[in-house]
């Protein structure tokens, strides 16, 4: 997957986890938490959905890399390059 595809994939996941949020004006370089109401349960779900959909593991120590869409894509790119 390309960097852009990964961002789309993460957006798609967020839209499933938090269908009540408006994602149309999300800035990719700003922390998701600052723009959306996401709690630790929701972040766990992003990780779980990544595992379910793309078989990629994100260890708890790395959760910080999922802060913004940009940082998600940077972090996940090597893990998802063959998917």
């Amino acid at each position: 997957m390309t960097n852009d595809q990964i961002k789309q994939a993460v957006l798609q996941i967020i839209s499933v986890i938090a269908p009540d949020e408006d994602l149309s004006r999300l800035k990719s370089d700003v922390a998701l938490r600052e723009q959306l109401e996401l709690d630790s349960m929701d972040f766990l779900d992003i990780v779980m959905e990544l595992r379910k959909r793309y078989k990629v593991e994100v260890p708890e120590a790395d959760y910080g890399h999922l802060a913004s869409l940009d940082s998600c894509a940077t972090y996940l790119e090597p893990k998802l390059k063959d998917k």
């Binding site: 499933v16 986890i17 938090a18 269908p19 009540d20 109401e37 709690d39 349960m41 779900d45």
Partner: peptide, 19 residues
């Protein structure tokens, strides 16, 4: 009310993928 952020009921809808 539906869409209220951060409330327990909203968490339940989200976590169970219900509306």
């Amino acid at each position: 009310p539906p869409g209220t952020r951060g409330a327990p009921l909203t968490k339940i809808y989200r976590q169970l993928r219900l509306t």
